[in-house]
Simulated assay, not measured.
Amino acid sequence: MPSPKIVVATDFSPRADRAIDRALQLCQQHGLGLKAIHALDHIDADKADWGYLEERMSRTVGETSCPTEFEFPEGSPPRAIARAAQSDDTYMLLLGPARYNTLGDFFLGTAVDFILRQTECPTLVVKHRARAPYGHIVVGTDFSPASAHAIIEAARLFPDTRIHVVHAWHVPFAGFQRDEYVRDEVEAGEAKRLDAFMAELVQRSPKLGNATSRLVQGGTHEAFAREISAHGRDPSATLVVLGSHGTSGFRQATLGSVTSELLRTLDADVLVINTRNAEG
């Protein structure tokens, strides 16, 4: 069986170095190999100087003790990147704020959205420079099988990083529910559900025994933003984990709704776990 690799895409822009730096850090942390890819459309590939591309990729990656390989897939960049990541040895795919035609600063209705739709592997969108390993992981739940799958996968991918689970809740028809006892009853019910959910997670994945959890009243974005800021002033130390598919709350009917909005707006690196088949 081939050794697992971190796959990272670059367009050689300075901003793409964020993903390269994080990829190298993860390779060192987890003892993995590195595959760095630069996609070429067919016109550029026809006139490419392959020796120059190898040299430039080597300079971009720099010195590393990690086993490293380079790949230059041909085709439209989003499609070529997705194809290059569809390999049994891909541990994780990393993307940065590079420009592949329509790919801009986390404008995720185009290229990144396409890549996330087409790949099965965990995909990390890197927004910040990798100053240190992630200090904590924040992941949301709506108690669904999809969100449970995302949390368990996060624990598998980052076994040494503490996970914090957040559940956003609200009072139904809050505009009509003025009595304080209604809010207290809803919160108490949600707290019981969260406790039961966390207990089931630990049964399925004992390494989650040290995970923490919290109820946050409000919307999904508000819950994540509050928890990110609560974990310190350095946003590069926080990793947010999202599931890719679902129907409501922290689940997304289609990538491009809640997940895409959070990817675009949260001030943290975001790992998207494929939960397409998690509903069973």
Rank of each mutant, 00 (worst) to 15 (best):
I137F: 06
I137W: 03
V139G: 03
G140L: 03
G140N: 09
T141G: 10
T141Q: 02
D142N: 15
P145A: 10
A146H: 09
A148M: 07
H149C: 09
H149T: 12
H149V: 06
A150C: 12
I151R: 00
I152W: 02
I152N: 03
I152V: 15
A155Q: 09
L157D: 10
L157F: 10
F158M: 01
D160I: 03
D160Q: 15
D160P: 03
D160N: 15
T161H: 09
T161M: 03
I163G: 02
I163T: 08
H164Q: 07
V165P: 00
A168L: 00
W169D: 01
V171F: 11
V171N: 02
P172M: 06
F173R: 15
A174M: 08
G175L: 12
F176P: 01
Q177I: 10
R178A: 13
Y181A: 10
V182M: 03
D184K: 12
E185V: 14
V186W: 11
E187K: 12
E187S: 10
A188M: 13
A188W: 12
G189L: 11
G189C: 04
G189R: 11
E190I: 04
A191F: 11
K192M: 12
K192V: 10
R193L: 13
F197H: 13
F197Y: 15
M198Q: 04
A199S: 15
E200C: 06
E200M: 09
L201R: 05
Q203M: 13
S205H: 09
K207Y: 09
G209R: 02
N210T: 13
A211L: 05
A211K: 04
A211N: 08
Q217W: 03
G219D: 08
E222Y: 10
A223T: 13
A223K: 01
A223E: 01
A223S: 08
F224R: 01
F224Q: 00
A225N: 10
E227L: 00
I228D: 07
S229M: 08
A230H: 13
G232T: 07
G232E: 11
R233Q: 14
D234V: 04
S236M: 00
S236I: 04
L239I: 03
L239E: 03
V240C: 01
V240G: 01
V241M: 04
L242S: 03
G243D: 00
G243T: 05
H245G: 01
G246F: 07
G246W: 02
G246I: 11
T247D: 13
S248T: 15
R251C: 10
R251Y: 08
A253Q: 11
L255Q: 02
T259K: 00
L262K: 07
L262Q: 05
L263H: 04
L266V: 04
D267N: 14
D267W: 05
A268N: 06
